[in-house]
């Protein structure tokens, strides 16, 4: 579904990603993990076509991103980026509707009326009640759900999420991740997430890619790659990893910064 080959990104003289190659299968959930500044958000932005890499090529459904128009990309890939500036007097339903641009086009959007995808997206993220509330007046969690609704409204087969659980309390974190898992299973969505919480990543993702200093350190299924060595090498912490009785997935606890 997504093939990224030898992606190199430089900001000035700093190399943020150094020949990173990642492949995501159709219907797979991939989690990108690593320390702050390891390049995981940058990689996500490259996959979404928001940042042209200095070198390398990204293919979505076999077509290089470069050969696709913005609208074509947006029909295939939706991204929830880390943050969004204040949007003024815009309401939630207006924001979510903007997700339909790629499908409906500038003229198609002139007509009134919510289409099915918009409604489903808002229902799935439980923001229907907030439809007429101004985005800037929402709480952090509500805002995050509204933005997720925007991404879902694009109805794209690939969903990229950059720390979707920030700003959310535990319950909403769980709800969002469960929702994404349901969509992944029901609609065969391909999902790539940047997640800070390694236990969460291990629990939900089919495969984990750990980045360190702009290169892929390890990748593989959670139960194969998540161990104390990974905690030390990638995150720089001493910690313990055990298998959760219920899910059978690795859980982590962090004890000290490793020297």
């Amino acid at each position: 579904m997504i093939e990224a080959e030898d992606i190199t990104v430089r900001f000035g003289s700093r190399t943020v990603l150094d020949e990173v190659s990642v492949t995501v299968e159709r219907g797979e959930w991939l989690a990108l993990v690593g320390r702050n500044g390891c390049g995981k958000s940058t990689l996500l932005r490259v996959l979404a076509g928001l940042l042209p890499p200095a070198d390398g090529v990204v293919r979505i459904q076999g077509d290089p991103l470069k050969s696709l128009s913005r609208r074509e990309i947006a029909r295939r890939v939706a991204i929830l980026s880390q943050s969004m500036p204040p949007v003024g007097a815009m309401t939630v339903s207006q924001l979510v509707r903007q997700g339909r641009y790629a499908v409906r086009g500038p003229l198609g959007m002139l007509g009134n009326g919510q289409d099915a995808a918009e409604r489903t997206a808002m229902a799935d993220t439980a923001v229907l009640d907030l439809a007429d509330a101004q985005v800037d007046h929402l709480s952090g969690g509500e805002r995050q759900r509204a933005r997720l609704a925007l991404a879902l409204a694009q109805d794209a087969p690939v969903l990229l999420l950059d720390e979707p659980t920030t700003y959310l309390d535990v319950r909403h974190q769980l709800e969002v991740l469960e929702l994404v898992r349901r969509l992944q299973r029901e609609r065969g969505l391909t999902v790539v997430t940047v997640l800070h919480d390694l236990s969460q990543a291990a629990r939900y993702a089919d495969r984990i890619v750990a980045l360190r200093d702009g290169v892929v350190h390890t990748q593989g299924p959670a139960d194969e790659v998540v161990d104390a060595g990974l905690l030390h090498a990638v995150f720089g912490v001493k910690g313990r990893v055990w298998l959760d009785d219920l899910t059978g997935k690795p859980m982590c606890s962090y004890d000290a910064a490793s020297s």
């Binding site: 128009s69 913005r70 947006a74 029909r75 949007v87 641009y101 500038p106 002139l110 991404a151």
Partner: peptide
């Protein structure tokens, strides 16, 4: 201007947002 009002609304948010929803 009326025909492109939707684009105006998208551009008013953020460049990244605009690209993400498919506006060049």
């Amino acid at each position: 201007a009326f025909l492109v009002t939707v684009v105006l609304g998208v551009l008013a948010v953020d460049d990244d947002h605009a690209k993400a929803v498919g506006v060049s």
